[in-house]
């Protein structure tokens, strides 16, 4: 049995390798939230059933006693009947309530033991001004491919790669979502129920528009680009919020004031459309967009940042694209270790 012995050796050394594996992740808590929600849902279901049972028992009791009383009253005097029925009803009530209280207490202690309780979620619906709780909600993640996600309210979100979108459990009531990464929103219009996007420490509110939110952890700013309609952004500095309208872009740096400027919104959606078709676009914008889509950092001399370029760079490699830009604007490109730097004379 040479064969099986050898098998065992291989098997044993493999098993040895994988002994005591242990892996903590940053989404462990999300898993608990979902597990907790499912098991507490099923617990409250049991409670409801018990409720029903006692209600039924109480109802029968009340009905039976009412019947007795009615028969009794019919034989006797009609005037005293109502007060007696009321008395009977009161008597039967305590029989059910201690048990119910027990159940409720159990539920409460269970809730306290967890960081996320349903109670909290209910409070949140009542007071929309509170910070929403996304830990309990559904999460969508695009890792290596962008995904298009339909939301229950009719809105559509496109997630860029390496992006998380979280949705509150009570999404249909308050339309709160959280973005970590980059996403394009097409929000269905509902004036009575604004749609709120949380990103980093900021949020923005819309009623029905198309816009892009970029909030990458490795970048020192957040960026909102509006393709259609109006978006109100709260940057924690401007109390009333900043209105960003069609064709505008707001950049919120980690430090300092937000910057609002006119852009060609389409260009900033090239991650979604694959189109890199520029019309009199500032080189600083093009450099930024190309750096993002091609994963090569492109930097510019200060005096050429405002130079403009018109042309379609879709489908070109980064080298080809840079060459086209450099030739059109008489610039010089220097390539070092995956970075490209453009220099030249000022265009002004």
């Amino acid at each position: 049995m040479k064969n099986s012995k050898e098998t065992d050796l291989f098997k044993e050394s493999m098993r040895e390798k994988f002994r005591d594996e242990y892996l903590l992740t940053d989404h462990d808590h999300d898993v608990w939230s979902k597990v907790y929600q499912e098991i507490s849902d099923s617990k409250s279901l049991q409670v409801n059933n018990k409720f029903k049972w006692y209600y039924a028992a109480a109802a029968i009791l009340v009905f039976a006693s009412a019947l007795t009383v009615t028969i009794f009253v019919l034989k006797q005097n009609q005037n005293s009947s109502t007060s007696q029925i009321a008395a009977q009803t009161e008597n039967s009530a305590p029989a059910q309530s201690p048990l119910n209280k027990d159940e409720i207490k159990q539920e409460q202690s269970a809730s306290e033991s967890s960081l996320n309780s349903n109670k909290k979620a209910i409070n949140k619906t009542a007071k929309p001004a509170d910070k929403p709780d996304f830990a309990n909600g559904l999460k969508y993640r695009a890792e290596e491919k962008s995904i298009v996600q339909n939301l229950e309210d009719g809105s559509v979100v496109t997630l860029n790669t390496a992006t998380d979108l979280k949705k509150e459990n009570t999404f249909l009531n308050n339309r709160n979502v959280l973005v970590d990464g980059e996403a394009f929103f097409e929000v269905s219009s509902d004036k009575n129920n604004p749609f709120t996007v949380y990103f980093g420490q900021y949020k923005l509110v819309v009623v029905g528009t198309k816009f892009n939110v970029r909030n990458r952890r490795d970048e020192h700013y957040s960026e909102i680009t509006v393709q259609e309609g109006i978006v109100k952004v709260y940057d924690n500095i401007t109390a009333d919020g900043i209105l960003v309208t069609k064709g505008q872009q707001l950049t919120i740096p980690v430090e300092g004031n937000s910057i609002l400027k006119q852009v060609d919104a389409e260009n900033f959606l090239s991650w979604k459309t694959g189109k890199l078709d520029f019309r009199k676009t500032r080189l600083e914008d093009i450099a930024l967009i190309l750096s993002r889509t091609k994963e090569t950092q492109i930097t510019l001399d200060n005096n050429v940042k405002k130079c403009k370029f018109t042309g379609d760079l879709s489908g070109l490699s980064i080298e080809e694209a840079v060459q086209v830009i450099a030739l059109t604007n008489s610039l010089k490109a220097e390539k070092t270790e995956g970075k490209i730097h453009l220099t030249g004379n000022s265009c002004e």
Binding site: Y22, L23, W32, I39, A110, S113
Partner: peptide, 20 residues
């Protein structure tokens, strides 16, 4: 049905079961 105890079990086994 003690959820506190179950959370303990969960916290202990989740990182051990994830690689599996």
């Amino acid at each position: 049905g003690d959820l506190k105890a179950f959370k303990k079990i969960f916290d202990y086994y989740l990182p051990r079961m994830r690689p599996v």
